[in-house]
Design a protein around this nucleic acid. Structure first.
Lengths: 330, 330
DNA sequence: TCTGGATGTGGTAACGTTTTCACAGCAGGT
DNA sequence: ACCTGCTGTGAAAACGTTACCACATCCAGA
């Protein structure tokens, strides 16, 4: 790789001049400017971001920590984060934690060593005060989780969304409703449980149970099989995300239980698959792409020292009614 | 952040000694060693990967260029790449090109500036010789594309897979078969077209047409609508990937055409969705995760100077027969 | 004529590491 | 006694940039 010195030598100018041309800073005469531009082309010169980062203390890189990019919701978020980042000249380092706290912490440390300028942390379960301790003041934004102590974050109103979903099941006539939850200590899972309970409790004559899931297909499948094997099968299931809802559909098929005739089903996230499965799944829309994009935008605004952007953004959940809760068309 | 100089001062030794302790290189007396370790603890010292990278010319970072992480096949690949990378101490920079050649080239340049040690390039359409020109010798591995000039790559036998798929349609009784193809200049799309044509040509009495798609939902939907609106509707469709196959299912629903009764359908990739849609889609399995993982493994072996790993790996495609080509259970 | 700002240019010290070199002691073998 | 090689330490030169300072011009205004 050609360096700035090579360019300077070829253009017969000093490195300072080349640097000024690159950064459009200071004064450069037309003649010199052209010579430098020519030399850069000639050598296919690419400024070294490492060296640049060392002196400017900026790397134009942000970290993205996500439970699992292979999960459609998170891959949407990731896409949003990257799109907004690159549009602002930032680059994204991708990290997968599998919802594992230790991996999360490991990545936070690792990213710090790489001098990322900030981190987008999606769907984290680590307590916020621990996070602060790890960060040494590195800017961070939570996504898919409402911050209580940190100042920036984007999230949907999970409690409200879960309330909507459960309420809808009740309105469709369900009286024995089960919730397949996410991991015990996941903030979004906790909020969804709370929304579920609230809707159940304010309605007399409706009974609710909570089964433990883990946001993943296998955990959802297992929970569903247990629910559907009990002597009193629920007539409505609210799964804490669409991946688990799809597992419920498969489990019901296996058990010979019909959806929506025997059991009605609502999911959460609105991943593309939820629309195309049979029956299509009623779900709560999350707008992962927009959330990712907004998280990136807020973080970068902070990094660039702009304060024209609000540090938080709550997305309103909306219920999408589809066939898993309707009796008319299949 | 504390620097190596701070540590040296506190431990009352030279920076050289601290460096030797950090890297376990050279000789360090026990007494000095202990003092340095103590000082590092005291200051919560974290070596600066940037400065280290500048001199060692190693960043422990690889670039991952993918058409679109939000596409389930590529998010699987991405997950595989990251898993193998982190297991070897490497970190991954994520880039999305939307199959756009210019963005691909832009990213290759950008990544070079960031001094990634190598690149995993997935589903690229850029001609290989152009690639070589851009790379300045930077190690690269192609994924989802068989290299002709470059030495490393992982891919599935796309021609063979497409042949399998088409052959299956013929065996199921189709005589007028349409192929919804990927972008004109995409190598994998080209190979799948070739496999399709070969299967068609070796069978007398079977007619084939090719419709132009773009690997995306919308393009597939449009192509499907056109095919299904013509006066002679095909009795079999082979879509070049599952995302477009799902679009075909939706288009058929819209048109009141039944799958598999009126038209049989085969996709490609085996993304999770293909199993759960209605009807479930017969498809050719690609093993995106394994491909990503292997690509990462081969690249890193090269970077670490190991040559115990083959530079190429062809994955055998397998046909998964599901309901979109069967008449028995829906 | 002098002053002083705007315009151009080059030299060089940082940034935080690793690596190479130089210099010492101290053994052990001749 | 002398060389030789191992052990232990520090000084200083890289790595590729940017930022700051110093020095030249040139031209306008007093």
């Amino acid at each position: 790789m050609a360096t700035i010195k090579d360019v300077a030598r070829l253009a017969n100018v000093s490195v300072s001049t080349v640097s000024r041309v690159i950064n459009q800073s200071g004064y450069v005469g037309k003649e010199f400017y052209d010579r430098v531009v020519w030399a850069m082309k000639e050598l296919n010169y690419q400024p070294n971001a490492i060296a640049r980062g060392l002196v400017s203390r900026k790397t134009a890189t942000i970290g993205l920590i996500v439970p699992d990019v292979a999960n459609p919701f998170f891959s949407d978020v990731a896409r949003g984060v990257e799109d907004e980042a690159i549009a602002n000249g930032y680059t994204v380092i991708l990290c997968n934690t599998d919802w594992n706290l230790q991996r999360e912490q490991m990545y936070v440390n690792l990213l710090q060593g790489k001098w990322v300028e900030g981190i987008v942390l999606v769907g984290s379960r680590t307590p916020e005060h621990e996070l602060v301790g790890l960060l040494n003041g590195l800017p961070i934004i939570l996504a898919d989780r409402k911050p209580t102590h940190l100042k920036s974050g984007v999230w949907t109103d999970n409690e409200g969304g879960a309330y909507l979903a459960t309420k809808h099941l009740i309105e469709m006539g369900c009286r024995k409703i089960a919730h397949i939850s996410g991991p015990e200590d996941s903030p979004s899972a906790t909020a969804r449980r709370a929304g579920f309970r609230q809707a159940i409790e304010e309605q007399v004559g409706v009974y609710g149970t909570v089964a433990q899931g883990d946001f993943r297909y296998d955990g959802g499948y297992e929970a569903a099989i247990q629910l559907l094997s009990a002597e009193d099968v629920p007539d409505g299931i609210f799964a804490a995300n669409d991946v688990m809802a799809i597992a419920v559909v498969q489990a019901a098929n296996r058990k010979g239980i019909r959806i929506p005739e025997d059991v009605k089903l609502v999911g959460y996230d609105n991943i593309p698959m939820s629309e195309y499965v049979y029956p299509s799944i009623t779900t709560v829309e999350q707008r992962g792409y927009d959330m990712g994009r907004m998280a990136s935008k807020i973080l970068i605004a902070q990094l660039d020292g702009r304060d024209d952007v609000s540090l938080t953004k709550e997305f309103e959940p909306t219920l999408l009614v589809r066939h898993s809760t309707r009796l008319d068309t299949p």
